Computed example of a mutant assay.
Amino acid sequence: MYDIVIVGAGTAGLSAAIYGVRAGKKVLVLEGQNFGGQIINSPEIENYPGIAKTSGFEFASGLYEQASNLGADIEFEQVVEVEKQGKGFIVHTGGRQIECLAVILATGAKNRPLGVEKENQLIGMGISYCATCDGAFFRDQKTAVVGGGNTALEDAEFLSNFCEKVYVIHRRDEFRGEQWLSDNLRKKDNVEFVMDSVVTDIIGENGVQGVIIKNVKTGEETELSVTGLFVAIGQMPDNKAFEKLVDLDSGGYIQAKEDCKTSCEGIFAAGDCRTKGVRQLATAAADGAVAGLAACEYINKSQ
């Protein structure tokens, strides 16, 4: 019997484990793939408070070792279901059932890929899914943002402050994002909209040197010379296994506010898997702390 079972060993999950074991609870972290989450693929991190510069792997490894050394059990198993039973829960994996008093869901979210050749190869070498994380590395360079929602427009706005040129590539003739965002971008001399277009190929072997775009109406292909390609076409949370237990929004994110409490008492959601406005490394760690302490408080009150 565990006090807390945490689903996911990313920044939020491991931060929650640290706070849980420091509060004297018996904590198990279950991860279906690799520890660290999305950040483990980032070659450089320069926006985490108190750490001037590190790599995603170093950051994630430090969290893993800290949680483990403090006493958290971290095991690599895929959680397929969480079941409410009496005052506690049963967490089902592919091979066993684990009883606990509280659950923290920290399953994260995956960036939706473009699905073009070389995309995976060049992640961290010109391709990024987070302008606020990596944009500063492209100062005075030409970049492109792919997407038409608020995130894409906000990314373009951010990049326009220090990039020589920012192309905004969108497959439709109108943006899905808010009008005021696109209006602000139209006022900028270094921002150019490339509408009705999709990226069909990425140029470069050891780094992005350009992209090939195709106009979906005319079929015409054009080459854009850029060194940075920022993909902002949405994220994909993986919360379907918990949809019968906690409320999800239309995008599949767990409905939880800053207190990380879900619609099911005793289950908490932390990090990118929950409904929130800002998804950054610092906010994931903050969610982990909040969820970890909230789970401890819930257990203390229910005993």
Rank of each mutant, 00 (worst) to 15 (best):
Val231Phe: 03
Phe158Glu: 08
Asn206Leu: 15
Pro113Ser: 10
Asp189Trp: 08
Ile203His: 08
Val226Asn: 02
Gly219Arg: 05
Pro49Arg: 14
Ile213Asp: 01
Ala270Thr: 05
Glu119Val: 11
Ala285Ser: 15
Thr132Met: 02
Pro237Trp: 04
Gly50Ser: 14
Asn215Ile: 01
Gly62Leu: 06
Gln255Phe: 04
Cys264Phe: 03
Thr151His: 04
Ala12Gly: 12
Asp134Arg: 06
Trp180His: 15
Cys163Ser: 14
Lys26Phe: 03
Asn300Trp: 02
Val211Glu: 03
Val80Thr: 13
Leu181Ser: 08
Gly86Asp: 00
Gln179Trp: 14
Arg274Glu: 03
Glu220Trp: 07
Asp272Tyr: 04
Cys163Thr: 14
Ile104Asp: 02
Cys130Ala: 15
Leu105Asp: 06
Ala286Phe: 14
Cys133His: 05
Glu58His: 15
Leu114Asn: 07
Cys273Asn: 09
Asn69Thr: 12
His170Asn: 14
Phe242His: 11
Gly71Lys: 02
Phe230Gly: 08
Ile299Ala: 06
Lys214Trp: 09
Ala282Ser: 15
Ile127Pro: 00
Asn300Arg: 14
Leu101Asp: 10
Glu258Gln: 08
Phe268Cys: 01
Lys240Ala: 05
Asn239Ser: 14
Ala131His: 11
Glu31Ile: 09
Gly32His: 08
Arg171Thr: 06
Ala12Trp: 01
Gly288Thr: 05
Gly288Tyr: 01
Gly8His: 09
Met1Gln: 08
Ala131Lys: 04
Asp238Met: 10
Thr222Ile: 12
Gly271Ile: 00
Gly292Glu: 07
Gln121Ile: 10
Asp247Leu: 13
Ala102Ile: 09
Gln121Met: 10
Lys257Ile: 01
Ala17Arg: 07
Trp180Gly: 03
Asn150Tyr: 07
Leu70Glu: 07
Val80Tyr: 00
Ile202Trp: 04
Leu122His: 00
Gly88His: 09
Ser263Asp: 03
Asp196Asn: 10
Arg22Gln: 12
Tyr129Gly: 03
Asp287Arg: 00
Glu75Met: 03
Ile51Thr: 11
Val29Ile: 10
Leu105Gln: 07
Met1Ser: 07
Cys130Ile: 11
Phe162Tyr: 08
Ala289Arg: 09
Lys26Met: 11
Gln179Thr: 12
Leu14Gln: 04
Val168Leu: 13
Gly271Pro: 00
Gly108Ile: 04
Asp287Ser: 05
Gly126Leu: 08
Ala241Tyr: 11
Lys53Asp: 01
Glu174Phe: 05
Gly277Asn: 12
Leu185His: 10
Phe89Ala: 01
Gly277Gln: 08
Tyr48His: 12
Glu297Met: 15
Asp249Tyr: 09
Gly124Ile: 07
Gly288Cys: 10
Ala12Asn: 09
Phe89Val: 13
Val7Arg: 02
Glu178Pro: 00
Gly50Ile: 15
Val278Glu: 13
Gln121Gly: 08
Asp134Ile: 07
Ile39Trp: 06
Ile4Tyr: 01
Ile74Trp: 00
Thr218Glu: 06
Arg274His: 05
Val80His: 01
Ser15Asp: 13
Leu28Cys: 08
Asp140Thr: 15
Glu65Lys: 11
Lys244Asp: 12
Asn47Asp: 10
Gly37His: 12
Val211Cys: 01
